[in-house]
Computed example of a mutant assay.
Amino acid sequence: MSLPKMSRKLHTKLIAAAAVLGLSSAMSVRVAAAVDAPADLPQGLIKIVVGFAPGGAADLTARAFAEQLSKEGVKEVIVDNRPGASTRIANSYVQRAAPDGLTLLLATSPSFTIYPYTYKNLGYDGEKDFRPIALLVDIPTAIVTGADQPYSNMKEYVAWAKANQKQATIGLAAQGSSGQLGSIALGKDIGVDFAPVVYKGASPMLVDVVSSRVSMGWDAAASMMPLYQGGKIKFLGLSGSDRLASLPNVPTVKEQGFPQFEAATSFYAIFAPAGLPDKTAAALEKVFLKAAQDPGLVKRLQENGLVVKPMDHAQLAQRVRKEKAFWEPVVKQSGIQFE
């Protein structure tokens, strides 16, 4: 497929637009502590490790919580972006970290619910190598395309994809994700083989969506909001069964007659290396759950397409087990597996 060339100046502008939600990598968040930190919190600099480049929904979530933690008495928190290998670089980094509570993982659910089945050599065991701390937000996902593309909803896109099968590509911020599984299921149902194009995060993927280098992109709706508000992309449909309050005019993919992406809603949660002492884990859980109750944080994330839905460590562990049971047969039926 012949792809349109893009000037360096435009490329830079698009990167900046896609990164508007985030700040520079590993920038620390320093806010004057309003209260004393819980006694059993780890003493020292806390790193929240994110497996994506700055600018996407994971980065936004990590920075929003880092700022709120500072207000809850945590003296200093930094967000450490370690993109690549579909979050496995970040996951492995935290897996190997000392279990002292100073290195935490903001994990996206596929790392623990889908990747155990899509990767032959995952490099970590989600249940043995990590300790669940708290679930923070649900992540409605979306299918988007460039504003200049000739289709504006899923029915129009499917008709276009059938007529232009060599150009039917899907941009993904992570390989082996629920979005990729959804595209495989959709492709089987309509007779189109969607070629996946995998990136190190939503920001670089969206650059190619805007410039029509890929025919559609899939990721967290929150990652898409700045470019959508700027008129650079169009939403074709949302995951799940319900529309978003922040996007009331965007129908779900299921509403449009394509149920393959209904289960593609994900979540972000905090995990620590296995071996973290009980008192430290409990203190971290308490401060994250308290931060999730802040009205300003809830509003900020909701306006960007994220749903704050906190759960404690036990509820998080239960949800991981439930979603693993759901995705295992889906992955096996899809036939996909990576090294």
Rank of each mutant, 00 (worst) to 15 (best):
T141M: 08
A142V: 09
A142K: 04
I143K: 00
I143G: 00
V144N: 01
T145S: 03
G146F: 02
G146E: 06
A147W: 03
D148S: 15
P150V: 12
Y151W: 04
S152E: 09
S152W: 08
N153E: 08
N153Y: 07
M154V: 05
K155V: 04
K155A: 14
E156N: 06
E156S: 11
W160V: 02
K162M: 11
K162A: 07
N164W: 13
Q165F: 06
K166S: 14
K166F: 12
K166V: 11
Q167A: 14
T169F: 10
I170H: 04
G171H: 09
L172G: 01
L172D: 03
L172V: 03
A174H: 11
A174F: 11
Q175D: 01
G176I: 02
G176S: 05
G176D: 01
S178G: 12
S178F: 10
G179L: 11
G179K: 14
Q180N: 06
G182H: 06
S183K: 07
A185W: 01
A185I: 01
A185M: 07
L186D: 00
G187S: 10
K188E: 11
K188F: 01
K188C: 01
K188D: 08
K188Y: 05
D189M: 11
G191W: 13
G191L: 13
D193N: 15
